[in-house]
Structures are given as structure tokens and as C-alpha cells.
Amino acid sequence: MSLPSSVRLFEVGPRDGLQNEPGPIIATATKIEFIHRLAAAGMTHIEAASFVSPKWVPQMGDAAEVMAGISRRPGVVYSALTPNLRGLEGAIAAGVEEVAVFGAASEAFSQKNINCSVAESLKRFEPVLERAREANVRVRGYVSCVLGCPYEGQIAPAKVAEVSKALHDMGCYEVSLGDTIGTGTPLAAKRMVEAVSREIPVTQLAAHFHDTYGQALANLYAVMEEGIQVIDSATAGLGGCPYAKGASGNVASEDVLYLLEGLGIRTGIDLQAVIDTGYWITAELGRKPSSKVALAKGCVGA
């Protein structure tokens, strides 16, 4: 299959990128400014917050304040993670128009992450999807460990397809396939997407790859050849997974954009503006971006 002519980037930096940030709680104003800069750079889909218990994810404890403080741009979707009904109600009250739920393709990861089996986790999502439909809120589904698990090792593509289909059948408009520990390689990524796309149209799938082993860009190229047109990424390569030992950040938005531009694939996003934003947010966090492209090109704005 040929490469797509355009790709939609789903920016997860403000949520997935910041949720496990060590040290002091990041100021709400900083999170809001980060989101504003991403939208100004041309990002049309930004995961802005997570409505979870502050006890478990302290950095996301101000989700309602973040959503209230955003100056919303027309044409930009500001979504939030909602693992349960309580989180969804908080998101609805905050005016969120799209939420996400997350499952796993690995039984062991599901137990370690959310203390239940894969089947039980999917059952828990049913009332969330039902309430979201009532509130006219779109729901996106995440599947973790699609190319490997820190506890089980390799994951069968058929298992990924099974969990993805369950989320799709429940009503998720899009299913994001997450290489949580970044161990995937291009052939494995292709075979996984082939298996899932037999159950769900490939136009309703997204790739969410971590770069632990330096394979994320190669894997993204491979799955774009299979028809993937939506890529999750985090500016400056922020993020990781507390349950995945050694997992480095998400693939950097800057690196993905450089790849896409080189392939002549349209995104509508200003690469330099994203690079500048990456330098700004990492300066706020006291370090430099992990994006190779950002480090090579440098920052030209504030």
C-alpha cells in the first residue's frame, strides 16, 4: 500500500507527556500555555488533561482547571483521558468534547496497571461509553502493549485485534495502538496492524509508539504503508510509562513532523513552532528536549 497524502497528529504531550513528570506539581498556567502554543503551531487534536484520582496521578489533579483555562481555538479538539464513570462526569462538567478510555492487550499489564483482567476492564468501559453517548461526547480507545509487554514479552497480534474490536464495537470512534515499552520493530508493527485492520477499518486506527529502542519512526513508516493516517506523538518526546521498566518517552512530535515533511505528507503543522514549544516546555521542566530534530535545528523563538 502507498503512503497517505496527509496525516493527523494527535498531540499527547500535555497529558501523556506530563502525567508522570517527577518533582513539583507543574503549574496549571504552564499546562494551559503549553496547550495554547501547540494549538498555535497547528495541532488540531490535543490531549489536554486526565480526569483521574490526584492520589494516583498528582500531575493531573488540576484537570478541570486546565480545561476551564484553555482559550479554545475553532477547529481544535481538546480531549481528556477518563478511565471510569467518575472521571467522565468530571470531564463532561468541564465541557470536554472528546474523552479516551484505555485497555491493554496483555493480561499481566492490565492487572499491574488497573488491577483487573482485560475482560473486566472492557466491562467497566460499557457504562462510560453509554454515558458518553448520552452526553454527545466522542470516545477514543487506547490499547497498551500491542507490540510487547514488560511482563509477558511478545503479544499475539490476534489478542490486539480482539481487544481493539471490543473497544470499536462498544462505540470508540478511533482505536490507538500503543507500543508502550517501545520494543516493536517494523515487521511486527505491520503484522499487528494487518491483524487489527481485519477487524476494524484502518481509517479508524492510530499508532502510539514509544521510542525506547529507537524504532518508533521506522515503525511509523511501516504502519503508514498499511494505511495508518493518525499518529500520536508528544512534543519534545515527553512522557513514558510508570509500569514499563526502561520505557522512554513517546515519539517526539518534531521527529515525526520532520519525517512526514520529507515524505511530502501534509499535516498543516509548523515544525519550527513545535520545536520552539518543545524548548519552552522542557525549559520549564528544567531540561532539554529529547527530540533529535529539535536538538539539531535549535530554537528560534521563545
Rank of each mutant, 00 (worst) to 15 (best):
L177I: 14
A234W: 00
M170Q: 12
G75C: 05
N84K: 08
A41I: 05
R287N: 12
E194W: 12
G61E: 09
T185H: 14
E33Q: 15
R198P: 05
V193N: 05
L81M: 15
L88R: 08
I200P: 03
T282Y: 06
E120N: 00
P83C: 01
G286I: 13
V163R: 00
R266T: 11
P74R: 04
E98K: 08
G90D: 01
E174F: 01
T28N: 12
A94D: 08
A252P: 10
P242N: 08
N20L: 09
V251T: 13
L263T: 09
V196D: 00
M67D: 07
E21R: 13
T180H: 08
D270K: 09
Y173Q: 06
A68H: 14
A39P: 11
R73M: 13
V57A: 06
A302D: 15
S2V: 07
A63L: 10
L167V: 13
G178L: 02
V77R: 04
V139A: 03
A188G: 14
P24L: 00
V7D: 07
H210A: 13
A29F: 11
E152K: 03
G23T: 04
E65L: 15
Q272M: 06
Y78G: 05
D255H: 08
S290D: 10
V52Y: 10
E152V: 02
Y78I: 05
E134L: 14
T282I: 11
G239C: 06
I25H: 15
T212P: 03
V251K: 11
M67P: 00
F209W: 13
V139Q: 02
C241R: 03
E98N: 07
A222W: 04
G286E: 07
W56L: 13
P157T: 10
V101R: 08
G13I: 02
L205D: 00
T44F: 02
V223Q: 01
Q215A: 02
T212Q: 00
R37I: 09
I200R: 02
D62Q: 15
Q59Y: 02
Y221A: 12
V251Y: 04
R86A: 09
L38R: 10
E130T: 14
L38D: 06
A189N: 03
I200A: 06
